[in-house]
Design a protein around this nucleic acid. Structure first.
Lengths: 200, 200
DNA sequence: CCCGCTTCCAACTGAATGGTTGGAAACAAC
DNA sequence: GTTGTTTCCAACCATTCAGTTGGAAGCGGG
């Protein structure tokens, strides 16, 4: 077979998603990633520098895929509620992503590729504002943060779920209920004149 | 000085809070904990078994303190909103706790001292139901989960905050706004006839 | 003051782990 | 088919880490 370095890189990134999602940056084992990818671990250092930089690449790739996969459509608060539901669905389908995001927050503090991701976030906020012009920018920011936090947490923190609802992991009815809670919360964003007052 | 094993244990637990909160279970270093406590690390194994059990003790103690520190008072949804605000304040004052909770969710999956904590959660839900009898048990559970998730996340995940609001860490005005968002969300729980319908 | 018991620790160990290296094999150009 | 370059890997290395051990020092009881 001919050289196919892109394939090798992709194999490593795929294995990295699994490993980092499961164990985080400190807990991940470079040897395991290489073995799962069927590639020598030296390749990781050659292609990506070191473990931490590699983690950054993994996270950046997954985040990029996710943000493109869930666009905002339509207008009105229901469009945002619909968006929130689809964010939730995406997280359910790709639970690694929420875990990666949380590992990043805990282990790194400062986000990787900060500028790039910040720009993307501003873009999302712009789209929310375009869909619901009544909101202030700050309200839209808080709304987006709330959506992402709740959707991510429901995937990444099964412990809270088990504790507060007694739910078993993978309970579909539970997931549907949680989804409904989130979309309902989003819809309240427009019906609350007191909200704006609270944000003086 | 006389023997004071309780003091030694407390020193270790205190140092454990710091270390585990900062680095998680996998990232924490037993040597660092012992050094910070001014105690030999062998004491950890003698008193607590191993690193993971010690982590469990640390988390259980902190959680116990926290749950007692923030009770539910009064009745009506405003009492719950007030409770949510105080949960938020407590998390701000003790940011280690949220991080410990998140580390647990990511690294352990299954909660430590599950039965005990589950019972305490049920008790909290009971108190919410007592304060707001119109809620179903499931609604109350979702409400509590939402409160805890949002309050914890705002402390444990500065990366999301930085990304979506561009806030610098430690911005007091930002914190106050976030607090208002959470209490406002709580208050919507009673005004939404559609919520019950959504939870068929 | 001595004896049994507990608390404490310096030093050690065995196993992983992140990262490196020297060279073999695949490839392209000529 | 020879040369130069790039991809790839087995084996290696230095370090770090969780956990152990053997014994010193503090303690209460007689």
């Amino acid at each position: 077979m001919a050289w196919d370095t892109e394939r090798t890189k992709r194999l490593l990134l795929d294995a990295g998603v699994e490993e980092f999602s499961a164990h985080g940056l400190a807990g991940a084992r470079v040897d395991r990633i290489a073995a799962a990818a069927g590639v020598n671990k030296e390749r990781i250092y050659q292609y990506f520098g070191n473990k931490e930089q590699f983690f950054g690449e993994v996270l950046t790739r997954e985040l990029g895929i996710a943000i493109d996969a869930v666009p905002i459509h339509g207008s009105g608060i229901d469009a945002i509620a619909d968006y929130a539901g689809r964010v939730f669905d995406y997280q359910c389908a790709h639970p690694e992503l929420a875990r990666l995001t949380f590992w990043e927050g805990l282990e790194l503090g400062d986000p990787v590729a900060k500028e790039h991701r910040r720009a993307r976030s501003v873009d999302k906020v712009d789209r929310i504002l375009a869909a619901v012009p009544e909101l202030t920018r700050e309200e839209a920011e808080e709304l987006l943060l709330t959506i992402v936090t709740l959707a991510d947490a429901s995937q990444a923190l099964p412990n809270l779920d088990a504790l507060y609802t007694g739910a078993l992991p993978g309970d579909a009815a539970r997931l549907a209920r949680r989804r409904a809670v989130i979309t309902t919360i989003v819809r309240t964003w427009e019906r609350e004149p007191s909200r704006a007052a609270a944000l003086d």
